Computed example of a mutant assay.
Amino acid sequence: MKQCWAEASEQRPTFDEIFNQFKTFNKGKKTNIIDSMLRMLEQYSSNLEDLIRERTEELEIEKQKTEKLLTQMLPLSVAESLKKGCTVEPEGFDLVTLYFSDIVGFTTISAMSEPIEVVDLLNDLYTLFDAIIGSHDVYKVG
């Protein structure tokens, strides 16, 4: 194609040369240019569909892993609300209160820190939290 665009006409291939090049692409079979182009487009489309299908399957597997982890960590009703993008309203019970917390900026902090620094940060944070809990009549379940 690039040769066909050459400014100097003597540098452009003749139609016979183009047909011969297409014959080599088609391994000597006699086909016309349009058939060859359509066949190449169909092959490209098929390859693209296969790639999209493959990536969609990979995405679905990762989504299932994420949902499984979420439901293992949180009560089902809380997990479902979070998946829908809803806020989870605190609930109170006469004998128990559940407390869920979020560390603002944790993703950014984690990305900019070494793994051991993240572990130390969480350890220090929850040690302080445990000390505060210890001064009240509460019991923490990990």
Score class of each variant (00 low, 15 high):
L41F: 05
V78P: 01
D120A: 07
F19Q: 11
Q11M: 07
Y99Q: 03
T31H: 04
M37A: 06
S101C: 14
F106W: 13
L41E: 06
M40V: 00
M73N: 05
L38C: 00
L41P: 00
F106G: 09
R39E: 04
E7D: 04
E10Y: 00
I61Y: 13
I132K: 12
D130M: 10
A111N: 08
P115L: 11
D124E: 13
E80K: 08
S45C: 01
L70E: 06
A6V: 05
M1I: 14
T71F: 03
L128R: 10
E49Y: 04
Q11F: 07
K68E: 06
T56L: 13
F129C: 02
Q43M: 02
F22L: 12
W5V: 12
Q3L: 15
A8M: 11
A131F: 09
P115Q: 10
E62T: 15
N32T: 06
P90T: 04
T66G: 11
V138L: 12
S77Y: 05
K140V: 04
T97K: 15
I18Y: 04
D94M: 11
D124C: 08
D130P: 02
V119G: 01
E80F: 01
R12K: 07
V78E: 04
E117D: 01
L59R: 12
L98V: 09
Q11N: 06
L121C: 04
T97A: 15
S101V: 15
E89I: 08
F100Q: 09
I116Q: 12
D94Q: 15
E10L: 00
T24H: 14
Y139L: 03
N123L: 06
D16P: 04
G92S: 15
K65M: 12
Q3A: 15
Q11E: 12
R53Y: 05
D94V: 11
M112F: 01
G142A: 07
A6R: 11
A111W: 06
L38K: 03
R12A: 08
Q43E: 05
L121Y: 08
L51S: 09
E49Q: 13
K84R: 09
C86Q: 08
N32I: 02
Q43N: 02
I18F: 09
N123Y: 10
M1Y: 10
L70Q: 07
C86R: 13
F106Y: 14
L51R: 10
K27H: 07
D94A: 15
L125A: 09
E89Q: 13
L48K: 05
T24L: 13
D120V: 04
F25T: 07
G85Y: 09
T87W: 14
I132N: 08
M40F: 01
E114Q: 05
M73T: 03
